[in-house]
Computed example of a mutant assay.
Amino acid sequence: MGPLVRRAGTAPGPPAIDQTAFAAFIASGHYDRHLHRTRQRYRARRDLLTAALARHLPAATTHGISAGLHIVCSWPGLDEKAATAAARAASSTS
């Protein structure tokens, strides 16, 4: 018998009360509503960020903005090290 089989027989699984509560949360529709609200919030934040980028960095091109929590932004002539240093300096003063 391998170590994984032995462990499976002795290791406790996730707490049953937590699993039961989460199953009820999903079955009641609360989880779907939570995801919907969260996606709306993140979409609004992403839209604000892309609008600010368009306003302040018109030469910038954004990618990956249709979904998710990230945006990839590139623009010609950017010195990445200088931009990183400027961002670090700006964040330490605020």
Rank of each mutant, 00 (worst) to 15 (best):
T38Q: 10
H63N: 09
A83I: 01
A87W: 08
T50H: 04
K81C: 04
Y42W: 05
A87M: 10
P58N: 04
S28Y: 06
I71N: 01
S66Y: 03
A60P: 00
D79W: 00
A83F: 11
L48T: 09
R43D: 12
A83L: 15
Y42I: 13
L69N: 09
I71T: 14
S91I: 08
D79G: 00
Q40N: 08
R45C: 06
Y42N: 05
A83M: 06
P76H: 07
Y31I: 02
G77L: 02
P58I: 10
H36P: 01
A59V: 05
D79V: 01
H34V: 01
R39Y: 03
I65D: 10
Q40G: 07
G64Q: 03
L49S: 05
V72W: 08
D79Q: 01
A60N: 02
S74T: 10
L48H: 10
G64E: 05
Y31G: 00
R46A: 08
T62K: 02
G29W: 05
A67S: 10
S74D: 06
A44K: 06
R88A: 15
G29R: 06
A52G: 08
H34F: 15
S91Y: 09
A52Q: 13
R39N: 14
G77M: 00
A67F: 04
H30V: 04
W75M: 11
V72N: 11
Y31A: 11
A82I: 05
L57N: 01
P76A: 13
L53C: 04
A52N: 06
A59K: 13
A44P: 02
W75F: 15
G64F: 01
P58R: 07
L57R: 04
S91E: 12
H30W: 01
I65A: 09
